[in-house]
């Protein structure tokens, strides 16, 4: 817009704003039991789909692939395989201080993988650490000293 009445040096205004809304996410019976098992029994449970027979971990109310309710609860092993991972090396607001490792682990007995932090990895050299984790290493579930019924009650460590 070019207008003789408009000065060329008009100051462009930015208006501050925020975007905070409070929610209470209902975890529902299935995830609530999954978290209760973490907290009370320190074990990771999956639910099995009666159609494709996969043991889904973490526990799901229904199988997204078959679109049927899952039929049974079963615990999985404490050890598993680190399938894919990333090492977050830059700082982002609201995130833990870098570097840290996130990965998906297939626990023994499970047919799907679960996301969590991978701790205890030597991250002094990010590239060396990355290359070493490409071998799909075995990991073990480690529970926090204080559990509160959240996914962060446990993490994985290299065996």
């Amino acid at each position: 817009m070019k207008d003789v009445h408009m000065p060329n040096d008009v100051e462009l205004i930015t208006i501050p704003g925020n975007w905070n809304f409070d929610y209470r996410y209902f975890a529902g019976e299935t995830a609530s039991r999954f978290f209760a098992e973490l907290k009370n029994s320190r074990r990771i449970m999956g639910t099995r789909c009666g159609k494709c027979r996969r043991l889904l971990v973490p526990a799901r109310t229904f199988c997204e692939a078959c679109y049927v309710e899952t039929v049974s609860w079963e615990p999985v092993g404490e050890e598993g395989t680190l399938e894919v991972f990333t090492i977050v090396a830059a700082a982002f607001p609201g995130m833990p201080p870098p570097p840290f490792v996130i990965g998906y682990v297939t626990l023994d007995g499970a047919d799907t993988s679960i996301a969590n932090f991978i701790k205890g990895v030597d991250l002094s050299d990010i590239h060396a650490a990355g290359k070493s984790l490409l071998s799909r290493p075995r990991v073990r579930t480690v529970f926090s000293a204080e559990v509160q019924g959240r996914i962060t009650d446990f993490h994985f460590e290299l065996i």
């Binding site: 996410y25 209902f26 529902g28 019976e29 299935t30 109310t61 679109y67």
Partner: peptide, 13 residues
Amino acid sequence: WGDSRRSLTDMIF
């Protein structure tokens, strides 16, 4: 209203 037995995805399913 606020049925904590079901997650949003549970309700949709």
